[in-house]
Design a protein around this nucleic acid. Structure first.
Lengths: 146, 146
DNA sequence: TAAAGTTGTAACCACTCAGCTTACAACTTA
DNA sequence: TAAGTTGTAAGCTGAGTGGTTACAACTTTA
């Protein structure tokens, strides 16, 4: 089980937009080249980021731009934007047919629920701690040291 | 994306073993009845729990028993036992072909890695906080209040 | 106005994985 | 020996992920 690659791809894309969009047109084709991901997938990710108000894109003219500063975008915002985890279902899967005639079967779901939601929240809170501006800074530092 | 139902099923199973194994033989057939999960799946889960030293089972005689006290088993132990997340790969999927000719492409993986591992660790640490004995206590309390 | 380049999106395909099911050997107990 | 149980292999189905082709909608430039 893994969280969809669209998430790390989205972070990669946003980093590229920040680094390159002032100098050149950052198209889905260009982003495909950097990420190694199919351009249609890139466009789908961009579309989700656009719906979340993170980037802006335009038909025809092309080139993605940030809709707000990377310091105002956290890893969690990206995680939510690309729908890593279904909000209805949650991170942990419960089997749907426990036996209501069994005292354990009809109650265990409820007992586990709070704790598993807490674990999911711990994951998500950790993602909230990192702004994408930090990712870009780290990336720039590593590049300058190469 | 969801963490496999085998995890919540395993917790369900262990709760049943604790509650019923003193009075009756808790077979895969019985556990299938309570969880609603196919008996072969139950046996597979039991087999993984056995490998992790959490339960003991025997051919022929049948009936699963706890190999150690539930107060010594956390949700994390179960999560590891049923292999929810591949230890090699980690929780977050990275696309495998970033472009090494792009300064972002060849470094972004490394930049994200520490933070994403941290988020995964936050999830897992939260699971370590709950012993299965607490799950059983809560379940018993709810049953007594029904 | 026409041509070229780009995004948005639908449709289909391939691959993987989870869970279900059947089947049967190995084992224990009565 | 017979009945019941676990361990496990093999094959199936359905869902989900990502890749690909295709094309309409749109913008810009010649």
């Amino acid at each position: 089980m893994q969280i969809t690659g669209k998430f790390t791809t989205a972070v990669h894309i946003l980093t590229c937009i920040e680094m390159f969009s002032s100098e050149m047109r950052v198209t889905s084709e260009f982003l495909s080249g950097s990420t190694g991901v199919n351009p249609v997938i890139v466009r789908n990710v961009l579309s989700q980021l656009k719906s979340a108000g993170i980037v802006s894109t335009r038909r025809g003219s092309g080139g993605a731009h940030l809709a707000r500063s990377l310091s105002e975008i956290t890893l969690y915002d990206v995680y939510k934007a690309v729908d890593c985890v279904d909000s209805e279902e949650g991170l942990f899967h419960f089997h749907e047919n426990p036996n209501a005639d069994c005292p354990v079967g009809r109650n265990i779901h409820r007992v586990m629920d709070g704790r598993l939601s807490g674990a999911q929240a711990a994951l998500e809170n950790e993602l909230k701690k990192t702004a994408l501006s930090e990712i870009v800074e780290d990336t720039k530092r590593i590049i300058s040291e190469e």
